[in-house]
Every structure is written in structure tokens, then in C-alpha cells.
Design a protein around this nucleic acid. Structure first.
Lengths: 336, 336
DNA sequence: CCGCTAAATCTAAACGTTTTCGCAGCTTTC
DNA sequence: GAAAGCTGCGAAAACGTTTAGATTTAGCGG
């Protein structure tokens, strides 16, 4: 490991001068600066991030809290995509990403303690149960925080337009001629409430009456449960003409239930999902869905987090809403 | 931030003694040790990982090289799962995971340089183009390395049993009565060659003749291309009785091609995939596939990497093969 | 040639640890 | 009762940086 000392000895200057040259300070002459830069490159110098962090209290490392309760976690496509764009954006700004979890080795520590231990400059809370006490500890701590798809008043957040998105989806379906809409919702959460509001709003806008018996509560990311609930819906009469699934992944369960009942999509019944996962396009028929702009969500979160870190003037409680768009497949029939 | 100094002052002992007490050294009396531990806990002390790393040259951080060429990357289910178990295992041993990429900010650095900069203790090469020069730099560097699903002679690797796995899958299909097998392969790579060998071996074992015109070369993770190739296969006569898809995700394209051709799975033609992704179980009919043991793969890789770091006696060139198993769905007909 | 300013460079402290070594004071041994 | 060994603790150096402040050097007007 070549250090500043090595360069300074080679060039006959002090360590301080080398440091300043490499950090582009003003009080070092252009000639020496150039010379030192050249030698540093020749010798393959890279700063030691730990030493630097020790001095400056900045690690250029962002933590990501990404819990894995449902067994999915990283394999959850929405969050994988968000994480991906979060990472890409962070790296462009010179930040690395480190996973922060509870329990590192035998050491029992909270997520917040873990952050302090690693000295991350900020943390993105990406996929998690927002009622986790660890989340509250972070929210109330002194570390810059950005949450995704959940809003705490005292902190910045980036959220998908769950309400207007669902509203738009309803409007689309309504425009296709549907007025008998069933909605299998996800589990109670901030996201779920937004989408439900959007659903009601959309229905009101379009003059569609909401039938309580067509409002079911299911679970996100559960094709199994969605299969069951869809079956239940199909057993009663009259039938809705379109079913809103909790999300695209769950919609697979819905598809299967409908096919098992001997019905055809969209001829006999229409289906929409929510998310915009890759599989949606390869289902047969292609699933109509609301495509969340995952890459903007992740990027915006990273950008906001970094702004909070680097610019003290940045507001710490901004809510950024990222719009998606209806993604038209072939699972919604046009009713005349 | 409470430091050793704070504790030492509070307790009237030297910093050295505190450090030794917390690290459970022998030359500090049980009484003082206990007292210091208690006070440290009270004050909410956590060691500063940077300072420690600076002294010890150990960060307890593992790098992960996880490139994102195909646009998928983290959303690639196989790799997401492997990464997940890699992370879990590493955390159990007290290691954190940091993504290592090229180009951090404006700084142009290779993956190897990035590792040196962050001083990771080792790196797992998980999802990547193994012909990348950056991979070679790592392989030839001094850092502990474990590769996944690719073998370099001079380094340890954890690989899925691509050869015997495919062999077993062929044997299963053959046992179901099939002898007319088509195989849409993935893109040329170490994995692809293993699977091809396994396919041939399985066919030989079962006395199945391989027809060259039923051997197509496609791409992994591409439902589109697989759709096209499947169509091509279906256009010729005679038809194979079973098609081996490059992987489960691509199999979706195959499913659609078959349905579009008006054929039924498995009545008219059987299909198998490879990977064992979650969706396979929700396709209709459920896809028969070879389920790779992703959680063991990731865990084994982390374990091996950590062993290399912590135990100098560990062999640096071990190849660990992780077996999977045939996952029986409903996409293969029994032929009598 | 003196003094002054500005530019360039250096010295040294500090960040929070770990670890070697030395030094007491005590116990054991012959 | 002296030598030797052990136990518990502290002083200090070191890891590789950054940075405030000191020091040197050069330039320049008078």
C-alpha cells in the first residue's frame, strides 16, 4: 500500500504538501502539484478511506436498510430495482453502498448502532416493515435519512404516486368501458391506504359505484392468497368485469384462478396488476398494470440523501412523489 | 461519539486497559474488565470501525462485484438469491457487504483499486461477465477472492452442479418416457458448457439420441429470443416431445410460443426449465425445472471467502459444487 | 538593502484504535 | 532473603490521513 508518506519521500516534500496537491488545495504551486499528481499515479496511489474517514468524519458510504422478513427481500423485484438505481446514482456521486442490518456477528446491535459503527454518512430505508422499532430509532437519530414509500413527518421521503397512480388505473379501466370493479388489496400499510384512496377517488371521478363485497383484503406478493381470493370472487354472482390485483406478482395467482375456473382473460373477465415487473409482459395475455418508475425512485432517494449530507441547507423533510404510468397490456377488454 | 478515551477517563484507567478489557485480553483483572464492560455499555460505546481498520488492516467488510450489464443484475432472481444468502452468512460472521463497482464518482478506478480503497477483506464475484479485465485483475491480485459459477484454476469457486444437474433433468425426462428432446441453450459461457455436457451425458446414459437440429443456441434470461426459437422448433416436423429451455425465466417465452401455436403443455409438448425461480410454481402449468440451491451457494461462497481471510491454512483453490434437485411441476407429460 | 506581503512549504497535532514493552508490586522458589 | 516469575496496568508509538498554524522564500516598493 503506497501512502502519502511514500510519495512525499520520493519527491522530497512533506506529507502535507502531497495531501494538499492531491486534494487540489490552493496553497501549493502548480508545478509541484502537477509533479506530485504524476508520481502518485505512477506509484498507484489510492487514498486510504479509513484514515480519511477517521480525520474527516465522512466515509462516502451510504447505508441501506433492507430487511428480509417475507423471505423475499432482494428477490422482490420492485425493491431490487429501486436498490439498483439507488446504488447507481450513489456511485455516480462517489458513494458506496453498504447493507446495514441488525446483529452483526455475535454483536447484538440495532440498525442505528450499526450505522454509527460503520459511520455511514446517511441511510436509505428501502424495504422494510416501517413499524420496526429500529426504524424509529433511525428516524429520531441524527443521521441523514431518506425513506422510500413511507412518509414520516420529520424526514425526507421518496414515494411512488400510489394514490394518483391507482386513480389513473381506475380511469383507464373505466374508459375501457368497465364499471363493475373488484379490488383485492394488499396488507394494511401506508402504501395500501394510498392505493385504496386512489381507487375510491378514481371510482368517484368516473361515476363508478364501489361494491363492498368486491373489496377484499389480501396480501402483497402472494400469488397463493390472491389465487384463493380470486376464486372466492369468481364464485359469487354477479361477476365483476375487472379485478384489480394487489400487485403484478400476485396477479399470477389471479390469472391461474381465473383459468382454473374455465374463464378467459380478458374475454370473460379483465385483470389489472400494479408495479410493472418484467414478468407482466410475458404473462399470457400480457398484463395491464401501473408501472412504477423504479429507476427514478431509487435515483431520487439517493440524490436527496446525498443532498442532505452535503448541503446543510437542504430541507430535511421533503416528500418527493415519483409518477409512474399505465402500462397497457392485453388483459383488459374493451367493453362497448 | 463516545470513545475509549471517554471510558478511560470516567473509570480512571488508561485507554490501553479499556481497549484490552473490551477485546477480552488476558492481562486485565476480571474485576476491572467487568467494570469497564459495564460502563462501556452504559455510555453506549461502539468501536470506531475506521480507527480499528486503520490499525489492524481488517475492515470486516466484504466486497461484492455484481455487474449490471444485461440491465437486469439485481433483478436477476438467481443472483439476487445468491447475494441474499451470501449477505446473511457474512453477517452471521460479523462481516458487512459493500458493493464494489468500477468508477466511483468522477474517480476512474478499477474494481481492484476500489477494493484497495475501501480495504475490503475479500471479494465475492457474483454476477458478471467473467471475461471482464477487471475480473482478471482481481483474480491475479492479492485479495482473497471467491467466484460463483465460474472456475479459475488459481482461485476458489462455488459452482452450481450445472453438469450433473442437467444430467439428472434429462434422466427425469427420459424416465417420463421422452426420447425426442430439444435443447435451447444459453449463450456460450462456462455455465452453458457444463449444462451442455450434462445434457449429452444424460442422453447417453438414457440411450437418447441427440438430433443436431434440435440443439439451438439462444440466450439466458431472454423470453423474447426463447419465444422466437421455440416457434422455430415448432414449425418443423417431426416435433420433439420435450423442450429444454435455457432457464425458467426464458421458459415463459417458450410457454407463450407454444400456446400461440395452439398447442397445450404438457399434452402436446412438454417443457422443462432450469433455475427454480419463484415464478416457475405459478406458471400454468407449473414448470418442471432443476432447482439450484441458491441459498447454499451464497452461504458456501461467503463461508469459503471468510475462511480464506481468517485462516491462512485454508486452501485457496477449492472448488465447491452445490447440488440442486429436480423440481417436479406439471409441464412434463408421462408418455407410455 | 530593509521591511512587508503573499505564496509555498513544512511542522505537528489530531482522529480512535491496537499493541509492544516496561514497570511496579506481589508471589513463589530455593 | 534474594532471585525469579507472574499479574495487572500504563506509556507511547503506530496506522494514513487532514489541517491549523508556523516558517521559509520570493517579490517588490521605497
Amino acid at each position: 500500500m503506497v501512502s502519502l508518506k511514500d510519495i512525499s519521500q520520493r519527491c522530497g516534500v512533506s506529507i502535507a504538501t502531497v495531501s494538499k496537491a492531491l486534494n487540489d488545495h490552493k496553497d501549493v504551486s502548480p508545478q509541484t502539484k502537477e509533479r506530485l499528481l504524476k508520481v502518485a499515479k505512477e506509484m498507484g496511489y489510492f487514498p486510504n478511506s479509513q484514515a480519511r474517514a477517521l480525520k474527516t468524519n465522512r466515509t462516502f458510504n451510504l447505508g441501506v436498510m433492507f430487511s428480509d422478513e417475507a423471505g423475499r427481500g432482494l428477490t422482490h423485484e420492485f425493491f431490487a430495482k429501486v436498490l439498483n438505481s439507488f446504488k447507481t446514482e450513489a456511485e455516480m456521486s462517489g458513494y458506496d453502498i453498504t447493507f446495514i442490518s441488525k446483529n452483526l456477528g455475535s454483536r447484538k446491535m440495532s440498525t442505528y448502532e450499526h450505522c454509527r459503527y460503520r459511520n455511514v454518512d446517511g441511510i436509505g430505508i428501502i424495504c422494510t416493515d416501517f413499524s420496526d422499532p429500529d426504524v424509529y430509532e433511525l428516524i429520531n437519530g441524527e443521521l441523514p435519512v431518506v425513506t422510500i414509500d413511507h412518509v414520516f413527518e420529520c424526514r425526507s421521503a421518496v414515494v411512488s404516486n400510489n394514490e394518483t397512480g391507482m386513480e389513473q388505473l381506475v380511469e383507464y379501466v373505466s374508459k375501457m368501458g368497465h364499471s363493475k370493479l373488484a379490488f383485492i388489496q394488499g396488507k394494511r400499510s401506508a402504501v395500501m391506504e394510498k392505493r385504496m384512496n386512489g381507487f375510491f377517488k378514481g371510482c368517484r371521478n368516473c361515476g363508478v359505484e364501489v361494491k363492498p363485497e368486491w373489496l377484499l383484503t389480501g396480501e402483497y406478493q402472494s400469488p397463493q392468497l390472491t389465487y384463493e381470493l380470486t376464486k372466492k370472487l369468481l364464485a359469487e354472482r354477479p361477476l365483476p368485469t375487472c379485478i384489480f390485483m394487489p400487485d403484478d406478482y400476485s396477479a399470477i395467482g389471479g390469472y391461474n384462478a381465473i383459468k382454473d375456473a374455465g374463464l378467459r382473460i380478458p374475454d370473460d373477465i379483465s385483470v389489472v396488476g400494479y408495479d410493472g415487473i418484467a414478468y407482466a409482459d410475458f404473462l399470457s395475455p400480457r398484463l395491464t398494470s401501473y408501472r412504477q418508475d423504479t429507476s427514478s425512485i431509487g435515483a431520487a432517494a439517493a440524490k436527496k440523501l446525498i443532498a442532505q449530507i452535503e448541503n446543510p441547507a437542504t430541507t430535511l423533510t421533503e416528500i418527493l412523489t415519483i409518477d409512474g404510468a399505465v402500462s397497457e397490456g392485453e388483459s383488459v377488454a374493451r367493453i362497448v
